[in-house]
Design a protein around this nucleic acid. Structure first.
Lengths: 300, 300
DNA sequence: ATAGGGCCATAGCCTAGTCCTATAGGTACA
DNA sequence: TGTACCTATAGGACTAGGCTATGGCCCTAT
């Protein structure tokens, strides 16, 4: 559903957060390189738009009201997310300039990389990263051909001439919308899952392959598809507003689980974990920037 | 630091996400109640602003480019956060209209409530919630006086005439900036923590009390304060850019931990957990809306 | 007491982004 | 060859938000 028409502007929220942090409208104006009256009117407009008084103004500065502190906290979360988006966009944009060329699989690029990039680029304004997104085999090709310095994939590394490091785990979990009958059950058996039509990604996608592989290892058939969609987020929203379950990366739906718009269903005896790995060609030493980026990516 | 001047507009991102979800600019325009040419030019402007081509346009609709899918995913996270902000603001704004009056302590109001509210209000546009923020004792007073229907607090409930339910746990953890020497240690002893100056909240804040209580239970003194600040997020940013550790709610810094701008330090033998509880007066039955809100708040 | 220097606010002007309607060109399918 | 989808351009109007200039408030130092 679209955002409410009274949604505040990101830059206004950012300015307001600065006011709260710095203690005065003037200082915030300076930090954002705008004139003080502009900042003043911007914040007033924000208050009018939200219908809430956010600041206690005084000749010695401005402090947030109780509501203002709360709004500032929420705004900070939104702004952080916007920063990550910016970092991701920067990496995508760096068509040729990139001093460090990273090639990552979709899950990692989408859910993990932005925050690493944001942190990484924050203190190194002169460096840039070129980000490319591809499936696992292409990632390995690019590395072999020295078209990329550092790769990220979701599967074990079959080639011996690649260095690698596990940087996290991607667990696939079964989820349904909160009105689904399974939400009233303690758990569901694997065979019941495998005989239930699911919302799935297209054949060949890493998520789907991993699930089907694990099911066949347990001796079950691949489930029928209730609906077949081309992206993780399409699957997500289909399940939120539909009646079929799906099996999906935990990271992709963590926000939905927290918000309650999706519910995790325990599947007895099924556990699909994929290791997330950084990989690089052993043939030459890891560039220093790559090494530093890896340090920004804690092994969760 | 301020957002980059080329940060896209929230409404533009929202529109773009709709285009990706619905498969055409026209449909997205309809969903956002604007004319098709407006949507078209808005998306073009977004592409120009980001410097990335986001859509493959065709006479039968528009599909995202590879970069476009990625951007759409990041944008979705940002928009979700904005929705939560809106939900929180709505609750704060409902000065009198609220059919359900909720009073919550700061940690819960800041980090947990927005997503519950967002989910809750989504399907109940006619209902509204009035949110008040107060410390634990005021929460209990309000409930006793029937000035509120449902409360959320971080401490055990001392009064017998209140019903309550644990809805989660707030763990306090020690964190430092990534350049702090402790990051090279396996763990730190409690006595070392208690003899190190910390960035702390003002005396009387729940977080600080909980830490000092636990330390004194273990026979240690309360740590000196390197810096004393009035809000959780002020503490957070002081630690990010400073040299002193702090002990803070895990939920308040989860984004920083993920991004690597803060690092958790294991403290041997110290564990400060606070139960997050919903409370309500037993004297009258829980209103139906309160019951439904509690269902939206899964016991994590 | 008075001057200076912090703060925030209002006034008036201008630019630029975004909305609208009207129109046109493409592909697909009956 | 309509009809029904798509997307794009043109031209005009609105307004949010930027600027400079100015004024009022309160504290502090002289």
């Amino acid at each position: 559903m679209p955002l409410s028409p009274t949604t505040p502007d990101l830059t206004a929220l950012d300015l307001f957060v600065s006011v709260v942090e710095l203690g005065s409208v003037s200082k915030a104006a300076a930090a954002h390189q705008i004139a003080q009256p502009s900042a003043s009117s911007r914040v007033r407009y924000l208050e009018k738009q939200l219908g809430i008084s956010l600041l206690e103004r005084s000749p010695s500065g401005s402090v947030p009201t109780a509501a203002g502190s709360l709004v500032a906290g929420w705004a900070e979360a939104t702004i952080r997310s916007a920063h990550e988006l910016n970092a991701g966009v920067d990496a995508l944009k760096a068509r040729r300039a990139g001093r460090l060329r990273v090639v990552a699989s979709l899950t990692i690029a989408e859910y993990l990389l932005p925050s690493w990039l944001e942190k990484f680029l924050r203190n190194r304004p002169d460096d840039s990263i070129k980000l490319e997104v591809a499936n696992s085999s292409v990632v390995l090709e690019r590395l072999s051909a020295h078209d990329a310095d550092l790769g990220f994939i979701e599967s074990p590394v079959p080639t011996p001439n690649m260095g690698s490091k596990v940087i996290g785990v991607d667990r696939l979990i079964a989820v349904v919308s909160p009105v689904h009958p399974w939400t009233r059950r303690k758990s569901v058996a694997v065979e019941e899952l495998s005989s239930t039509p699911l919302v799935v990604r297209e054949r060949g996608s890493g998520t789907r392959e991993a699930l089907e592989l694990e099911l066949s290892r347990l001796g079950f058939e691949a489930p029928n598809s209730a609906l077949e969609l081309g992206s993780t987020s399409a699957v997500r929203s289909a399940v939120v507003s539909g009646t079929s379950p799906t099996v999906i990366s935990e990271r992709a739906v963590s926000a939905d689980l927290a918000a309650g718009s999706l519910v995790e269903i325990a599947i007895d005896g099924l556990r699909v974990d994929r290791e997330l790995r950084a990989v690089w060609p052993k043939t030459r030493p890891l560039p220093q920037l790559a090494d530093e980026l890896l340090k920004a990516a804690p092994a969760t």
